[in-house]
Design a protein around this nucleic acid. Structure first.
Lengths: 304, 304
DNA sequence: ATGAAAGCGCTAACAA
DNA sequence: TTGTTAGCGCTTTCAT
């Protein structure tokens, strides 16, 4: 051992893997990278893996259908990884099966996904909470800026967040107005344009908006400003995520913690890899969230 | 081959690597991930690598000193990769040497770095151009929001961008005022606070600001708004990057293209890996940039 | 405890 | 062209 240290000897990972069957490498599959949530989750996962001595191989599914298949059929098959973390992916049944067929630990962030151990915030519940926050402040005209349907094919957040919104309204005995739900593409710009439509029409202006993510919520704040409306005096806005910009914009939000989520998923995978570290084949573990009240929400405007 | 296809046979990458010495895997070293430029560059590199059939292993250096050393001493030594792409890293001489000692193709984005093939925008030149844009509109009181020194340890952009700014002013025969250069941390929030100081003091308010990146420039725009100043009527603002939010904010900027840069770096590495694909040991290849004039810059305000 | 050797699944060089 | 085999650098089992 002394001599090895002296010579800066490092085991060849290939020879070691071939002989032992362990690769010291974990795969991360993500729907895209250049988005706050995903890159933060990857960052958290990467650090945790490094601490465990694992390398991390990235598989980005943002390509077209054929490229996506190639990940499952080629890249994931070459025995390069000991386990897998899937982040915010909406997987088809056949894709789930192919992951399970690898015979390696798989943990997903965001779910539940049938047959896979998942970590997930309860999207319906946090959306209900966000909406209830607005209700508790006295709002009754609450609009929702949700995700467009086509995003459901990647990760099924939008639907569940919409469900929680309607649930909260229904519980409060408030009529659900179809024209109070608009969709956008999860970006600041998308939220801006949606909020312009919502707030610009004096016949239907809501007093509060619940946006399905902070980036859209920030777009809503900017749209309100450009319409000469004051936040929160004229309109209250709440988001979800705890995005790095949310504090700067004074946005009330339900924070979740992608770095910690990534690290926790990694710990679960690595734990299963250790001798004796089996896990029940399927489970959906809840993830922490916090309501962070800032300056973008207040009671509804008092009528003149 | 038919039988292989039929059986969904995929070569074991470890066995193949051990026998051939090729791993079909490229390493990406980055200073951090959760920033627009880096995640976009990684995305571009990842897609290009996938097309070439390569896996990608991520090494994030955002950890502390010991973690950083571990990347060079352990992770990069285990013969897992055929080549390396380093993104926007400020490397010590010893780190450069350790990369070269791997005996594998290394291409860096951002440079120049002594001894390594680099792709780089000419930071001094694009900063000069940005400043000259403001000069050509008639501005003479031009401030600079630059990067704080401590960021130089990761990537040396700030210094070079400041150099270009001063060069343009000097060429125009304009006195360089020390109080017109302030620093921030490359974030929207940082730019906001710096611009507040710069624009809030009536005794020294500049008529234009050149920010060293778009995120800080966007912070400047928001600060101007909050001070009741109109952009560009009262103050012109220009950034660098072509950030995804720059269009939304009407920001004039010098765009660069991290996705393409990542893809190009990958092509260079993969090209060297192909039989007969040698490259001169060191070179600094220029990268494309474009001045994109939007609505955040105009002539200086006319005195009352 | 320490040492010897088989073999992990391929690639590449060589023989036929 | 097609077939054969040594050996890549380790891990693990088995014998000492």
């Amino acid at each position: 051992m002394e001599a090895a240290t002296l010579l800066d000897y490092v085991v060849s990972s290939n020879a070691s893997s071939l002989a032992s069957g362990r690769t010291n490498n974990i795969g991360l599959i993500i729907p895209a990278l250049a988005r706050w949530f995903f890159s933060a989750a990857v960052e958290g996962a990467q650090h945790a893996l490094m601490r465990h001595g694992y390398d991390v191989t990235l598989y980005d599914l943002s390509g077209e259908g054929a490229e996506r298949d190639r990940v499952f059929d080629l890249f994931l098959q070459r025995q390069r990884i000991d386990g897998l973390v899937a982040i915010s992916l909406e997987l088809s049944a056949s894709e789930v099966q192919r992951l399970l067929d690898l015979g390696k630990p798989v943990v997903a962030i965001g779910g539940p996904i049938e047959g896979i151990v998942t970590l997930a915030v309860d999207d319906a519940e946090i959306s209900r909470l966000a909406t209830q926050h607005l209700l508790s402040l006295g709002h009754t005209q609450i609009a929702h800026v949700g995700g467009a349907d086509r995003f459901d094919t990647n990760f099924h957040i939008p639907t569940n967040r919409h469900v929680g919104y309607e649930l909260a309204l229904r519980n409060a005995g408030i009529e659900i107005r179809p024209d109070y739900t608009v969709t956008a593409d999860f970006t600041i710009e998308g939220g801006y344009h949606s909020a312009k439509q919502l707030l610009g029409d004096p016949r239907r202006r809501p007093t509060a908006i619940f946006a399905a993510c902070d980036e859209m919520a920030i777009g809503c704040i900017l749209a309100a400003r450009d319409l000469g409306l004051s936040v929160p005096r004229d309109v209250s806005i709440i988001g979800i995520d705890g995005h790095e910009l949310s504090e700067f914009f004074g946005l009330t939000t339900i924070a979740q913690y992608p770095r910690e989520q990534g690290a926790r998923a990694v710990d679960l995978v690595v734990g299963q890899l250790r001798p004796g570290g089996e896990l029940e084949p399927t489970a959906n573990l809840p993830l922490a969230h916090d309501l962070i009240v800032r300056t973008s929400t207040a009671g509804p405007p008092v009528p003149d």
